[in-house]
Computed example of a mutant assay.
Amino acid sequence: MPEPARVLTTLRQVRDLSPFFALDVGEPDGSRPDESRHDESRHDEGRHDESWHDGDALLSGPALPGAIDRITARYRTTEPRVAASLFFLGYTARLLSPVVAARAVDGAVPDVRPGNLWWRYGTDGLRVRLKEPRVGTGIAESLAPVVDAVRAVAPVAPGLLWGNAASSVAGALRIVARAGTASAEDCVALGRELFAEPPLRGTGEFVPFPGEVAFRRRSCCLYYRLDGGGTCGDCPLPAR
């Protein structure tokens, strides 16, 4: 089977696990392919722009700072690092869920590097989609440029961002196991394999729990710093 067909078959196979596993393919209406051009004079525009962007706009230009500004305002926080963490947590949940599920069903893992993406942050939150149905590379290589770009916008620790990625991987494995798509034991084994190398190594550990995927991360996503926020189920901090 040709590579595009294998990727599309896998995406169809896993998309019904939850909305976070549904990854569409193709150029969306309202895309702005020139948005990756760096132009400081357009930063204020980025704060109000809810259009679809080329994935390269994550790496330079006003689109990513604008999205983080909108998250800051939406959640009424004075800490840009909290908004940056929330952006990346949503980004990894949207992209790593289908990636992890593809691995769990032994399918074709999609390419989720920025160059193969469209994305937008609007009133309905973060949305992502693929440009082309092609086979991708590892999680670290796919996410590392975005980690660097987020940290260029806000002073957030790299270990925190990679902890967010690990949390998204573990959350996806939990859903895969609960759906019966793969056993909890196989999902934990896959998680340990994915976390065997840096930068995901040391981000957390799987906790023995029969028939379940239980994970405890070693960093906090900072959600508790929002007004009315609390700690997540895999947070290392005491419950708040």
Rank of each mutant, 00 (worst) to 15 (best):
M1P: 13
E3G: 10
R6D: 02
V7N: 00
V7T: 06
L8G: 05
T10H: 00
T10N: 02
T10S: 01
R15L: 08
P19D: 04
P19R: 13
D29H: 15
G30V: 12
S31E: 15
E35G: 14
S36N: 13
S41K: 14
D44G: 06
E45A: 15
R47M: 10
D49I: 10
E50N: 09
E50L: 13
S51C: 12
H53E: 01
A63S: 14
P65S: 06
G66C: 05
A67G: 09
I71Y: 00
I71S: 03
T72C: 08
R76S: 14
T78V: 15
E79Q: 14
P80I: 06
V82I: 15
A84K: 07
F88W: 06
A93K: 11
A93W: 07
L95P: 02
L96K: 14
L96P: 01
L96F: 07
S97I: 00
S97Y: 02
P98H: 05
A102K: 01
P110Q: 07
V112H: 09
L117V: 11
Y121I: 07
G122D: 06
G125R: 13
G125N: 07
L126I: 05
L126V: 05
R127W: 02
R127G: 12
R129I: 02
R129W: 07
E132W: 14
P133K: 08
V135L: 09
T137K: 15
I139T: 08
E141A: 15
V150L: 07
R151K: 15
A152M: 11
V153Q: 12
V153K: 08
V156M: 11
G159I: 12
A165D: 02
S167C: 05
R174K: 15
R174Y: 02
I175E: 10
R178V: 08
G180E: 03
S183Y: 07
S183C: 06
S183Q: 08
E185N: 11
V188Y: 00
A189F: 01
L190V: 04
G191I: 00
L194V: 12
L194T: 07
F195D: 05
F195P: 01
G202D: 01
T203E: 09
E205M: 11
V207H: 03
V213G: 01
F215A: 00
F215M: 00
R216A: 02
R216L: 04
R217N: 04
R218T: 14
S219N: 09
C221Y: 00
D227T: 13
D234Y: 04
P236A: 04
A239P: 11
